[in-house]
Design a binder for these strands. Structure first.
Lengths: 214, 214, 214, 214
DNA sequence: TATGAATGAGTTTTCATTCAT
DNA sequence: TATGAATGAAAACTCATTCAT
């Protein structure tokens, strides 16, 4: 006794324990989903007793919210850190996408919580996730807007159209992140840029695909 | 007694009852999510007793699977019916997208089950949904491949690249279907075509966006 | 099989089951108190499973409220049935007290719920009990008022004074009911009448005990 | 450091800390009831950590018992101090009642513990309270007995009858203390004396109310 | 003297599912 | 075909209590 590692009831500072719990919760929620994950399982995964989880995180809802907040902030931080503010719009978009795919590939459980699980309607944290998604979409929207301004694009794009494009791009990225977990972030980012960028460029030049256009 | 409308415990043919139950289940699952929806609530919504639901649909899982199957088939049928086999690829894509957006807008509960709810991992029907999604992606992939062949596109697109594009397109459509519920299917479809088609066209011509391209 | 009494899972009509549950709940709450009584124990005492208790009575709170309501109504009915409306006030009071003591002696558990347990502050049914007590006090107050009017009592008794007397009488009766559970209702009623009635009579004649009166 | 008021973990003598804890416990038990009050809440209210409460008071039960004991002794001391041993019986009763009502009005939380909460059967301190109540009743019984002896009351009152009267009086006082919290102790005491004393006097003179007495 | 960290045991409540008719 | 009656199993959450410092 007295040796490091001999602890039976480890005494660990609160901050550390909270991180352990969040780690365990993210993994468990990712694996099972919100409703199917039990507090019991999370506590076991965290290596503590259930009451301690409640003492620190208060409820299943708050625990999930804390997970979502942490993972969303990490993702946003990664993307934001990657983007060089002064660079041309396509460069910015590329950097952002690259960071996005690399982060989600590196943190699949966090991504599962943000994407697959948290969409679930009816749960009390739905707005937390919706807000994060809206923020990301707005970020992309601003990028597209800036690019359009750069290009002096003539038949100005309607706001609603830009917003729609942003949502489409976000959805495409999310889908690729899920599908392409096995592929490198660079490949995914390139796919999306190829897919989207010349479409955007064309749009900005005033070109439009017309349904009647045979 | 015996008069039409006087019976309280109606004897209704099995097929009709089953449809009532599926309707109620789809609505309830869409509103609450799989776990949160209770068989009690579904039975009440269907206007029958719980044992009858079990008699016909056997279990919550099977019930949900039946819902997913029905809604997935309806969506696929709608898309397939809209596409003219002989038409040029862009025309086919346009028709498919239009049908997709119109169907999801017309059946938001069905769409919620396919998209939001059913993604939830860990649930036993996850594969049902994944399969449907894969089928749709494959359909799109085939379209793109056909278009590429049409265009005699020279630096042949890698299979993996085409699949990635297909997934991106599907994700973009899904995202738009959720975001743009308020907008007309035609608008959404146009947005996506503008967004995606010239990118594809450009790709087929061998143009590529390059990260190094400053 | 087929013999009466061979049931393993008895099928009993809802009304009967509800009464069984209320009986068990009254006994258990009386023995343990509201918080200390567990739904498990009540279910076992009622000879059913816990879910059935919840199916019929919805929650511990509602269950307790139902108990209080039932016992309060029974007590009030017993007292009210015993009082002859036209009789002189002392006669009415006597009959009421007698019925009160006999009923509480015959239903000690019900009385425990109304008196000992239900006074507990902080519980959500407190007002239910307070209301019943107020109703009884009001009934007595009316009796005293009527007696005073009968007696043409001269220095009219202040309303507040009458109300105070009524509360004192109720408290005395409650105390006796608890203490004198072993004694006959008739004895208890006589004790109270002797204790209280000539005091009232004296008051009505204008006599008052004065603190200064050595 | 070392300056008065600078310490955060105050070193306070045991006696003082114990009083703080009892004060907090009395207030909390009064507000929530025995079961609903948590040791956590009490510790917070006392401004100390939970282990310290256990160090000094050992368990929830013992803590509650200590509260009951302290409040009961304070009430008894107040009543006893007010009664002049040599005075005539009615005078003694008057002084005791007055002190009782004034003390309970001044210490409503203490009274709540003794009266409302502690009656709860099934809890391990029930006897503590019952003992106190018995002691008070005995005190009153002695007073009545003395008065009867004073009055050379002829048809000697049976012991059981005197005890019953004492209990009735105590219950009346308790009821008034709860109902009449808003009224002055003097008013309440006067109400009771008027209510009870002439009844007692009459009894002692051999007068009895008879059920048959129409 | 004083406390942050930790838990075993128990609570109320819900739900998918079945039996007897 | 249809249902009222019934339950096993498990979930979220709380609490009195103790250990290590």
């Amino acid at each position: 006794m007295g040796l490091v590692g001999t602890q039976s009831k480890q005494r660990v500072p609160r901050a550390v324990r909270e991180r352990q719990m969040l780690d365990a919760a993210v993994a468990t929620f990712a694996k099972r989903g919100y409703r199917a994950a039990s507090m019991d399982e999370i506590a076991v995964a965290a290596g503590v007793s259930k009451p301690l989880v409640y003492l620190y995180l208060h409820s299943k809802d708050e625990l999930y919210s804390a997970c979502v907040r942490r993972e969303a902030e990490a993702l946003q931080a990664a993307v934001r850190a990657a983007v060089e503010p002064g660079a041309p719009a396509d460069r910015q978009l590329w950097s952002g996408l690259l960071a996005f795919f690399e982060h989600t590939a590196a943190h699949p459980d966090g991504w599962a919580i943000l994407y697959s699980q948290a969409r679930t309607v009816g749960e009390p944290f739905a707005e937390e996730v919706a807000a994060m998604r809206a923020e990301i979409a707005e970020f992309v929207r601003a990028l597209i807007g800036a690019a359009a301004a750069d290009a002096h694009c003539d038949p100005v794009l309607a706001d609603r159209e830009v917003a729609g494009l942003a949502h489409a791009l976000v959805g495409a990225a999310e889908s690729l992140a899920g599908w392409g977990a096995a592929h490198s972030g660079r490949e995914n980012a390139a796919t999306l840029m190829n897919f989207a960028w010349s479409g955007l460029a064309n749009l900005m030049r005033g070109g439009r695909w017309e349904p009647s256009a045979r």
